[in-house]
């Protein structure tokens, strides 16, 4: 049973620019901390409410503080990046299904760029219960491999890759995943779509099940508009109920049935 989401006005506590355009925004939101499952997201409504809300993963949730980690890539994220401690914003959430960590004991977490925002909570939860977590973390260069220490401190083993070779493997992070020794029993991934597709491919080759946190443009974020769909095997437990006559796949909402899907059930 997923927690009941709500709309809340929160106050910004801290703002840090971790790399050029990568913003970590912390705020006081005990109501969110209590109920958030790893991999869930919020719709962030900038003050004034004149712009559509934007969907962002919940990065940290501890004590009374939660945070968002995002890359400034448009008007809405630019507005959020301008917030300073003391400013208010409204959040709708937590939304979406989140990761299913099951009983996995040896987990490979794959993150590309700002996709790191979705995977801190599951990584922390896994290490806390004694599971082995290897973080496969890729970005264009070392500057954008942000917040690595936090993962190391949480007990994750780090394997990094950069497009320009400034840290770790010079190439794609999924190449490191494919070469990993001691095969994981679960893969969690969040990042750009090509990286997720490559992760799904590698997971299938390794014979390991993978959960992918997808990113999509949302309008409502709560399942009301059907604007963010992905084709899903109709036999998936996540697939919306739909007549069999329509075919062997169903368009599932990334915001409602997802954003986390089993890689082998996606028909992309």
């Amino acid at each position: 049973m997923l927690p009941r989401p709500s709309v809340s006005d929160v106050v910004v506590l801290d703002r840090t620019e971790l790399a050029r355009g990568v913003i970590l925004l912390g705020f006081h939101a005990p109501e969110l901390v209590d109920v958030t499952r790893p991999g869930q997201f919020v719709m962030a409504i900038p003050p004034g409410g004149e712009r559509a809300a934007t969907a962002l993963a919940i990065y940290e949730a501890q004590g009374e503080r939660a945070s968002l980690l995002f890359f400034v890539c448009g008007a809405r994220t630019r507005e959020l990046a301008e917030l300073r401690p003391g400013d208010k914003l409204s959040l709708t959430g937590p939304l979406g299904n989140g990761f299913d960590l099951g009983a996995a004991a040896n987990v490979a977490v794959v993150a590309g760029g700002v996709g790191i925002a979705s995977v801190l909570l599951p990584a922390q939860q896994l290490t806390q219960r004694g599971s082995r977590v290897r973080l496969f973390y890729g970005a264009r260069n070392v500057e954008f491999l942000v917040d690595r220490d936090r993962f190391a401190n949480a007990g994750c083993e780090l394997c990094c890759a950069t497009d320009d070779g400034t840290l770790g493997h010079h190439g794609f992070i999924t190449e490191l995943l494919a070469q990993a020794e001691d095969k994981p029993d679960l893969i969690l991934a969040c990042g750009p779509s090509p990286m997720l597709r490559a992760t799904a491919f590698v997971a299938a080759e390794l014979g390991v099940r993978a959960q992918l946190a997808l990113e999509e443009t949302f309008a409502c974020g709560v399942g009301g508009c059907w604007g963010c769909v992905v084709p899903l095997d109709r036999k998936s437990s996540q697939a919306p109920k739909f007549p069999k006559s329509a075919g062997d796949f169903v368009n599932a909402r990334v915001c409602k049935e997802g954003p986390v899907f089993w890689a082998h059930e996606l028909r992309w």
């Binding site: 443009t217 309008a219 508009c225 059907w226 769909v229 329509a246 169903v250 368009n251």
Partner: peptide, 27 residues
């Protein structure tokens, strides 16, 4: 039943939203 239009179905525009969902519904 209709599976609806292919993605992308949404494009944010200045002060607006362009959509093409395509009447996805179960019939």
């Amino acid at each position: 039943p209709r599976l609806g239009n292919p993605m992308p179905r949404l494009v944010p525009t200045p002060a607006g939203l362009l959509n093409a969902i395509g009447l996805q519904n179960p019939g």
